[in-house]
Amino acid sequence: MSNVKSILLVGVGGQGTILVSKLLTSGLIKAGYDVKMSEVHGMAQRGGSVSTQVRYGDKVYSPIIGRGQADVLVAFEKMEAVRYAEFLKPDAIAVINDHEIVPLPVAAGLTEYPQGTVEAMSGAFKTLVLPAAEIADSLGNSRCMNIVLFGALVKAFGMTDIDWKEVMREQLKPSILEINLKAFDAGMAL
């Protein structure tokens, strides 16, 4: 099991983590790995915290990991990075979207959104912090934020031996392909 790698994608419901995990698993299967993926469809996930786990290697048994087991984290929202930090290996890489989604208790004025989440993560782990939402906006479509993060993951985790653009061409609808290829490049360029 030593060669099994674990990727943890976390965010807030509706941010597009599922599409990224779909691209990841498609590419990894094509490259000949054994792959398992796990996601939980919980109660009213809109606005809730979501996580998806992708594991690959010669032979993968467990679809999920425990504490201290992820090799890389992609946090689509910065506070979610902290929520799942305990699942990371001490030498894990954390790709963090410098983006804030206010949870209900904060919106209702009951508490404050925590300060210093990104700094705290950077102090504990090797991190790549990027403004994926702004990058996506500058490309002309805020919805491709997830693919910017996907590109950043591929670069940061050294997964460049797989032809991800080919995978995107196979998996994405033609109408959204071009913008997402650009978003992938923008993430890779960081």
């Binding site: 504490r67 506070m79 209900l104 925590p114 993560m121």
Partner: peptide, 19 residues
Amino acid sequence: KAETRDPGCAIVARPPALC
């Protein structure tokens, strides 16, 4: 014991709500 690192930053829950 799993080796973990604590970023040491308090966070807020995201309770589910009616849409």
